[in-house]
Simulated assay, not measured.
Amino acid sequence: MPISVHLRTYTGETLAICSHPSINALCLRAHNLGLPGLGHVDPEDNTVFNRLQLRLLIPELIRLAQEAPTGEAEAARELLALTEQMQSKPHHVLLFNGD
């Protein structure tokens, strides 16, 4: 099942969702490149990034948006848009929902 990414409040309210079909491939590419943030997203469980962890995640997404094949690059850009929303709001997380 594909990974979806949810921008959520700490109380569990979902504010936005990215369900790009290439998120799984993007995470696999990050894993193969040894990237410590996106490369450790669990495709079979939930992985959560808080605002402080965006310092690790954003540079990885920027790199992948520039270097990855088209579909994966689009997914990276969509995820970057979620991180932009998250940076301006305290008490929010990005939940990578694997299944």
Rank of each mutant, 00 (worst) to 15 (best):
M1K: 09
P2R: 07
I3R: 05
V5D: 08
V5E: 01
H6I: 04
R8N: 13
R8G: 02
T9I: 06
T9K: 12
T9V: 07
T11F: 13
T14C: 10
L15D: 04
A16G: 05
A16Q: 05
I17C: 13
I17M: 07
C18I: 06
C18A: 11
S19R: 14
P21D: 09
S22I: 04
S22T: 11
A30P: 14
A30V: 10
A30I: 11
H31Y: 14
L33K: 14
G34I: 11
L35N: 03
P36M: 03
P36C: 00
P36D: 10
G37F: 05
G39H: 05
H40I: 09
V41C: 04
V41F: 01
D42I: 03
D42E: 08
E44W: 10
D45V: 08
N46D: 15
N46A: 11
N46K: 14
T47V: 03
V48Q: 02
V48F: 04
V48P: 00
F49R: 08
F49K: 07
R51G: 11
R51Y: 11
L52T: 13
Q53F: 07
L56Q: 11
L56E: 11
L57F: 00
I62Y: 11
L64M: 11
E67P: 03
P69M: 04
P69I: 06
P69D: 14
P69A: 13
T70D: 14
E74W: 05
A75Y: 09
A76E: 04
R77H: 12
L80I: 12
L82G: 00
L82H: 03
T83W: 01
T83H: 00
Q85L: 15
Q85G: 15
Q85E: 12
M86H: 10
M86D: 02
S88C: 08
H91D: 15
L94K: 02
L94G: 09
L95N: 01
G98Q: 03
